[in-house]
């Protein structure tokens, strides 16, 4: 059974139908890419999954639980973390305070410390800058912090919204390596990207979203060789 299942999802902004009956699945252990152009509805889908937006219709199930009826703040506790678009770190708090907020729902101090050590091992820069106010970090460092913060909840699945946006190529490499590492550590990944090439390289399967609908789906290699995908998303 799929870990996360989205079925016939419909989302409206006022009268505008942004998501038009989207269905997809993420199985445990997979890296799934959701690619699409600006305004296709990728962010809307992630926000709806984690409860920041209420859908008009459709089902969202995570490990058999109905997420539509679950308030956003309870979803983290179920093991789902979300690295939002634009990172949305707490700019006025320090790096360490941000990371601690990532572990907000966890009780055991020793487990939190262990996660903190893991995050520092993955992102040594965050440890060097742990007492720095987060708003003064560079864009790439802020993205690392957003990812580290999500990992602090020790999630079973992590949703990432365009982690490569506005970041220099070198750091993008680092971040995609991190996603691989997160995945090989056993965490399932749902990755939203406009950088289709990079996303397809590290994913098992992918869905292509066009104006609120799934236009194509398949395993990543297939899609990379698909003529339409090549033209529209890989710039070939």
């Amino acid at each position: 059974m799929a870990m996360l299942r989205v079925e016939n999802l419909e989302v409206f902004y006022g009268v505008i139908r942004a998501i038009k009956g989207v269905s997809f699945e993420v199985n445990e252990g997979e890296v799934i890419a959701l690619i699409g152009a600006n305004g296709a509805g990728k962010t809307t889908i992630l926000h709806t999954i984690t409860g920041l937006i209420q859908p008009h219709a459709g089902k969202i199930e995570f490990e058999g639980h109905d997420l539509v009826k679950t308030p956003a703040y309870k979803i983290v506790q179920m093991g789902m973390a979300h690295v939002p678009e634009g990172r949305r770190i707490f700019q006025q708090l320090t790096v360490l305070e941000n990371l601690r907020l990532g572990a907000f729902t966890r009780k055991s101090n020793s487990e939190i410390q262990a996660s903190l050590k893991r995050v520092y091992r993955s992102f040594p820069r965050l440890e060097e800058r742990k007492n720095q106010v987060a708003g003064t970090l560079s864009g790439g460092e802020q993205q690392m912090l957003a990812m580290g913060r999500a990992l602090m909840s020790d999630p079973k699945i992590i949703l990432m919204d365009e982690p490569s946006k506005g970041i220099s190529p070198l750091i993008v490499m680092e971040i995609f390596n991190m996603i691989r590492e997160i995945s090989s550590g056993g965490t399932t990944v749902l990755l939203v990207e406009q950088n289709a090439k990079k996303a397809l390289e590290i994913s098992n399967r992918a869905y292509v979203l066009e104006t609120g609908k799934i236009a194509l789906e398949g395993n990543a290699e297939e899609l990379m060789n698909n003529e339409n995908v090549k033209k529209a998303y890989l710039g070939e």
């Binding site: 703040y73 707490f90 729902t105």
Partner: peptide, 23 residues
Amino acid sequence: KTGRAMLAVSEDKGAAELMGVNV
């Protein structure tokens, strides 16, 4: 923890909810 949650909510309600804060 509650105090930190207040700081988080005051900066970004949505992001605070994603951390598991009951806004």
